[in-house]
């Protein structure tokens, strides 16, 4: 078994064993989907609301899992000295970081599948006609938000601060960007704030695929904004990422 596969397996074992991470990172978006689907009903733009909620809650999953979960995990491991310890072993840094990314994307994929399956079983959700763009959008979003996750991990100083910082960013962002429901009737100033947030553009790509049947390349601005955020996060990580505890 290759070293990369070995490390992905190790990361999976560690992730699912940690009940807090499994519940918060994996289960929370799934539970929110069930909750919102139960309280809201009716239609949006002439389609059942489930058509809105399934992809939107998956975009929340992107932010929660590939950005938040990744950043928190890296900071906790760094502050506990795990990264420093691994640094003294022959495991190459690129293999370690690549496996971290791969393992996170795996958790997100399972989460997306869980939300889609529940949507199908409980609310008769179906893939839209433009389903390849929907999946491409999720993949692009997951990669870009993971880049931001690495960047955030490089900036956050303490393990205690990590989940606070991440939640303060992720939950309001998901709300304003339309991850929890349509934002058409939001006041203008909130929509202006939303235009600054990367998740808004991922939701836009996804909604364009569902409601307008528009493929992802018809949304070049949204794609570019997302990519810019992802690249910026990765650059910060490249410059600032550390393997040793900051606070001690």
């Amino acid at each position: 078994m290759s070293l990369f596969a070995h490390q992905v397996r190790a990361d999976q074992l560690i992730f699912w064993r940690g009940r807090e991470s499994a519940v918060f990172v994996f289960l929370f978006p799934v539970l929110l989907f069930l909750l919102l689907s139960t309280v809201y009903s009716g239609e949006f733009e002439g389609r059942p609301l489930t058509d809105y909620l399934v992809p939107s809650l998956i975009t929340y999953g992107v932010a929660n899992t590939t950005f938040g979960g990744l950043a928190i995990m890296l900071v906790i491991r760094r502050e506990a000295g795990v990264l420093k310890r691994i640094r003294a072993t022959p495991l190459p840094a690129a293999t370690f970081l690549g496996a971290t990314l791969c393992s996170t994307l795996l958790v997100f994929s399972l989460q997306a599948v869980a939300i889609m399956l529940l949507g199908r079983l409980l609310y008769d959700w179906h893939f839209p006609a433009e389903w390849p763009s929907l999946l491409l959008g999720f993949a692009l979003g997951a990669l870009c938000f993971a880049g931001m996750g690495f960047g955030a991990a490089a900036l956050i100083r303490s393990a205690e601060g990590a989940s606070a910082v991440v939640n303060v960013l992720v939950l309001p962002m998901a709300f304003l960007s339309g991850g929890f429901g349509p934002t058409r009737d939001f006041p203008q100033f909130l929509q202006t704030i939303a235009d600054l947030l990367p998740l808004t553009y991922l939701v836009e790509i996804v909604q364009a695929a569902v409601y307008d049947g528009e493929p992802i390349w018809e949304e070049p601005v949204a794609v570019l904004v997302l990519l810019a955020w992802g690249v910026a996060g990765s650059l910060i990580a490249w410059r600032r990422f550390g393997w040793e505890p900051r606070e001690r």
Binding site: H6, I14, G18, V82, T89, R248
Partner: peptide, 29 residues
């Protein structure tokens, strides 16, 4: 790094994994 072993002053490993699982993960490196 293949030939040295390091015990740091402060460092933890993964809390929810067992002793042998932790050792197997590191042995794989």
């Amino acid at each position: 790094r293949e030939r040295i072993g390091v015990v740091l002053q402060h460092s933890e490993s993964w809390a929810n994994v067992t002793v042998t699982e932790t050792l197997r993960i590191f042995a794989g490196y």
